[in-house]
Every structure is written in structure tokens, then in C-alpha cells.
Design a protein around this nucleic acid. Structure first.
Lengths: 339, 339
DNA sequence: CTGAAAGCGCTAACAG
DNA sequence: CTGTTAGCGCTTTCAG
């Protein structure tokens, strides 16, 4: 803890009361002080290298200027862009972010929530799809301001920012249909994750509309290894029963690649593969991955804006922001194989 | 800001003084209170859902229990593991991390440093190689506790945690030499970055020891695009003058892949490529990348330990921790092409 | 326009 | 073992 020089030090040197220094240094209250003294005090404060103590100010104003950002796992590559988007607006408004990882554990999430509250965060940005109703209720009961990002939030008392998953899934399936695919597998994430269930439902609806024959399998997590395990099992049980697979996200799609390789199959020659998120480096995979690009940075930006508006009592913001997604066609999807 | 129920509330309800409540609730001071009252007070505090206000405590104790973590860019995939390593030990010791991104700008780093100081962080973990001497001096002059991670720190007044870059480079070059390569290119990062210059020096030394003919070119940043640009330029000027390239990190190696593709060359058939870091998904690139694996999570762990020891005045920790690295051989490196 | 005083919630002497 | 007192550094009435 630094804070070598305090308001009192500056006040003494300037021969005025601390309150005058406080008023002079704060933008909003500087008008209450004569221009001359403001100028003089600012000069002295500069010379003394005064820098305010945010902690002390927060105690008094009941605003920590700190936001809690709850993510499942920062090493999942979709979260760094979200966090940076959040950060970019927070920083410009004078806030800082306390980023915590839940590893999809409700227990950990609870502990982290308590820790963030003890630190008096002014609000929460919640990027954990796993969050259960009960936890959301807990947040709300404590009067916390929060915004949900990258998770569906119907019937929940917080605004949310999401990508248009349904449109993304539709675009992916239409792309496959246009390539001649009739039998498509959906490798879904665990349904406790809201994005997984939204995408799964969209898959079923769109496939029906397009007249596709479908199979759905579930991975136990949104990870490469879970995707690989699920796809291996599928390939052993149902070889060659589909010509394309739409994965719930890019990590699962990568797991599919691994499973295909293990079974001597190639994408797209044997099976087309499509992911979701357009995570960093998905263009460098082997083959490069066709996927649905979601605007993660912008999602972070919008969620932070929503939260700050809420905190600072600005005009009522929208309850839900849906950002457009786009299909990025690369090597992993191709025409249905001729047999 | 929550903090619905305060120490005073609990004290009133328990019919004791706030200080007794404070002592009872704090592990270290609970011994000063009779077991009976401790038990009673804890029960009441529980019932009232008391939760301490870290901000108020920090003001009094001059410890914010908050650490600033300064990284260049969280979307560079080596940093999330470091941050999670840091976080894992911080959290278990009751600290939280304020993570900030400098985007390699000294100006931004300065502003962020001030912001962190105003927030009264108890210490800093600095992962920005770019940090200039002057900034380090500034940190030190302000009496800040800090640890440097993933950057060389000779002649600097802070402990540091690094990977054994020299050994990694040596292992990579020995691997290439064993495959028959005689002419090797080093695609270095900008020398203002300490890791880049360390690796560059190690490259020169080891190559000399192994009797290799070398060329060195520099990328303007440790990024895919900078690597691609530099490698394109090299290939246009000196086609087929080397049979292998050792990149300063995996992102540069990826840039090399792009440049090779553009010039109709393949790795490893035409040129072998080796990266550094073993960043996530480097095994899924096309081809999978031979690279030096650095223990980023552990580096985060060790740096956090060092910092906390420093803060809590524990036994004098080592000034420098060097963690071992290992060469991971994958598809991108192979025998020297026969012509 | 400026000063005095109070107090945010907590811990740490100092007494008893 | 417990209560009293005094602030940490800051903002905000309330006077004047």
C-alpha cells in the first residue's frame, strides 16, 4: 500500500482545509471552489505527486469502482476477448475488473461470489453458462447489479448480451444442406450450459425445416477431450451413418478432428465438420475449421456498457442485446462424399 | 456495494463491543477472546449473514489483499495459463488479482501502474517483457513489491521467474542438427522484448557450438502477422537458403507457416519449423508444431509465491527461479530435404 | 466560496 | 478477557 501523500498533506501545504482540497481535485465538485484556489491546489498536488486512495474513497462513497467478472476458465480461448472487451470500457470509465474462474464448479462460484462481495464490487459480469437459477436468485436477492454475457437469460432478472446462436446454427446447416448433406450429427455440449441447449434446440428446429436426418450426441463438457471421447464412441457404434457433424463449439470440433484421425477418416473428404465461435487459431487447424464467428470482444463491450448504465442509474437500457454472427467457411466443410 | 450487516450490527445483537466481535472473527486474534464468546459471536455472525468489508479492513490495515498483474495482452495464449497459475495461489491465500493489459505501450503501462497504485495493490506481478528500465526504476522507487515473470531481469531489483530459454533453444537446435540441418534461420522477436533477446543470444551461441550456418531476421512484434511479414520478405530475398527456421515463439512460427504456404513451400518437407512456448492448440496446427514447452502455469504459481513471501516478509526467497523447459517434437520438423 | 465535523467499517493500541 | 478510544483517507453535510 502506497499512498505516501494524502489529502491532509496537500491541505497543510496549501494552507487550506482538506475538504477544499477534495473539492478542488474532484471534477464534479471543483465548481464549488474559486478558480484561483482550484488552480493553486492542483499545482501543489501535482508537485507533491498526490494520488488519491481509491480504497478510502470507496469506503466513504460506497463505490469501489471495481467490477467482478466471472468466467468458467480464462484458458478457454473465447474468454480473453470477452474480458478485454469488458476491460476496454471499464478502464475508460475509471473502473477495474476483478476476473475470477469457476472451472464450472458451483461451489467455487459461490466462494468467489462471496469474495467479490466482500471486496464491495459495484457489479458483476457473469459469463458462466453453468450458473444455476438458484445462484442467479442469490445474486439478485443481494441486490447485486449484474449482466449476463454469452448465456441465455430468459426469465432471469438481469440484462444479457448474447450472440445470435440460432441464426448461426441455421447458417451452418443451410451451408451443409447446400453442399448436399442429408444426414447430420450434432455433437452438443452438456445441456446444463445454456449456450449448449440453445444451439441444440436451434439445430433440431432448423434441421426439421431443411428436411435433414439428424442424430444428436452429448459431450460431458465443452472441451477438446470431451468432444473426442464422445465422437470416438459415436464412430465406433455408428460408422459412416452421417456425412457431416456440427459441433457445439470449436473445442468440441477439435475433438472431432482427433477422433476422425484416430479412425482414419478425413475432413472434409469423409465427413464435414463445423464448429462454433471462430476461436483464435481455428483457421490454423488441420484442416482449417469452418465455424460460426461470434463477436466476443463486442459482447464484452456491450455487457460492460449495460452494467455501468445500470450502476450509474442511466436511462433504462435494453434487457437483452443479441449480436449478429457470421458463418466462416473454411476447409473442414465440403461436398457430401460420393460413394 | 453491499455490506448490509456490519461488525457494529453483530456487536449490538451480541451485546458486546465491536472490537470483541472483530477479535472473535479474525483467526489470529480469536485467541484473545474466551472460547465461549468466540463461539457465541460466530454463531450470531453466521445467523446475521455477516460478511466482512475488505475495503474498510484494508483502509485500516494498509493491506488491500489485492495484487496487480500486468500482462501485454490476455489474448496472447501464453498469458491465460500464467494468470491462472498466479490466481490459484493468490486465491488460496486470500488475495485477488487485478489483471491489466498494456498492449506493449509504455504510456498505457504507466497509466495502469498509477491506477493500480491508487487501488493500493499490495504488490505487482509483471509479465511485460517490454517494461523498460525506467519503468522498473519507477516501480522500485515507489517502494512497490514486485516479481517479474517470463522476462529476464538481470540487474533489476526484483525477483523473477523464467523458463530456461537458453536450454530450450539449445535443445531445438540440437534436434535440428541431428536431423542433418546445417543452415538455420532464426526469426527473432523485437529485441526490446527481453525473452526475444535472450533467445536470440542463445541461438547464436548454440549454433556456433554446433557449427551451424545461421541467418537472423527480426519481426516487429511477437505476433502471427509480424512473423508472416518478416518471413515473406526473407523468402523473397533468399529463397532456399536455409532448411530450417527456429521462431522466437509459436505465434511467429504460425506466421512462418502462412508465409511458406504463400510461397508454395511445405513444412517439414521443404523447411522445418520450430516454435517456442508450446501454446495451447499448437499441436492442432497444420502441420502440428514442434516447439519448446514452457511451464506457464507453474511460472504463474512460483511468481505469486515469491510475491506473497515478499509481502508477508517471509524468509528471503530466491532472487531468480528458472523452470525447466522441454522440446516437444511434432510434425513440423523433419530431416533436411535432399536435393 | 471555505472550514469544521462527522463518519464509511474496520483494527489496534491502551486500559482495565 | 473485554471495553474505550482513535484513527486509516476520504467525501459530505452543515454552518458561516
Amino acid at each position: 500500500m502506497r499512498s505516501r501523500v494524502t489529502l491532509a498533506d496537500v491541505a497543510k501545504r496549501a494552507g487550506v482545509n482538506v475538504s477544499t482540497v477534495s473539492r478542488s481535485l474532484n471534477q464534479e465538485t471543483a465548481g464549488q471552489v474559486s478558480k484561483a484556489t482550484v488552480k493553486k491546489i492542483r499545482k501543489i498536488a501535482d508537485e507533491m505527486q498526490y494520488s488519491p486512495n481509491t480504497v478510502a474513497r470507496g469506503l466513504r462513497t460506497r463505490k469501489s469502482m471495481t467490477i467482478g467478472v466471472i468466467v468458467p476458465d480464462l484458458t478457454n480461448p473465447i474468454f480473453p476477448p470477452i474480458v478485454r472487451g469488458v476491460d476496454s470500457v471499464l478502464f475508460s470509465r475509471g473502473y477495474s475488473a476483478l476476473v475470477v474462474n469457476t472451472d464450472n464448479s458451483a461451489e467455487i462460484e459461490n466462494a468467489l461470489f462471496d469474495s467479490l462481495m466482500e471486496r464491495q464490487v459495484d457489479g458483476l459480469i457473469i459469463a458462466t453458462g453453468h450458473t444455476e437459477r438458484s445462484m442467479i436468485a442469490k445474486y439478485h436477492n443481494q441486490g447485486v447489479k449484474a449482466v449476463l454475457v454469452n448465456r441465455e437469460a430468459s426469465g432471469v432478472p438481469f440484462p444479457s448480451v448474447i450472440g445470435d446462436d440460432a441464426a448461426g446454427i441455421a447458417a451452418a446447416l443451410e451451408h451443409l444442406a447446400a453442399l448436399g448433406h442429408k444426414k447430420v450429427l450434432h455433437l452438443a455440449g452438456p445441456t446444463v450450459l445454456s449456450t449448449a441447449s440453445v444451439r441444440s434446440i436451434a439445430f433440431t428446429n432448423t434441421a426439421k425445416r431443411l428436411g435433414l436426418t439428424t442424430k444428436i450426441i452429448k459431450a460431458t463438457a465443452l472441451s477438446v477431450s470431451a468432444g473426442e471421447i464422445a465422437m470416438n464412441k459415436f464412430l465406433e457404434a455408428n460408422p459412416k451413418s452421417v456425412t457431416a457433424v456440427l459441433a457445439g463449439n470449436d473445442l468440441l470440433a477439435l475433438g472431432v478432428f482427433h477422433a476422425l484421425r484416430k479412425h482414419g477418416l478425413r475432413a472434409p473428404q469423409d465427413i464435414s465438420v463445423i464448429g462454433f465461435n471462430n476461436m483464435p487459431f481455428s483457421e490454423d487447424f488441420s484442416p482449417s475449421l469452418t465455424t460460426v464467428s461470434a463477436p466476443h470482444f463486442e459482447m464484452g463491450v456491450e455487457s460492460a456498457r449495460l452494467l455501468i448504465n445500470q450502476i450509474e442509474g442511466k436511462v433504462t437500457s435494453p434487457r437483452k442485446i443479441t449480436l449478429p454472427v457470421t458463418l466462416v467457411v473454411r476447409e473442414s466443410s465440403g461436398p457430401v462424399p460420393k460413394r
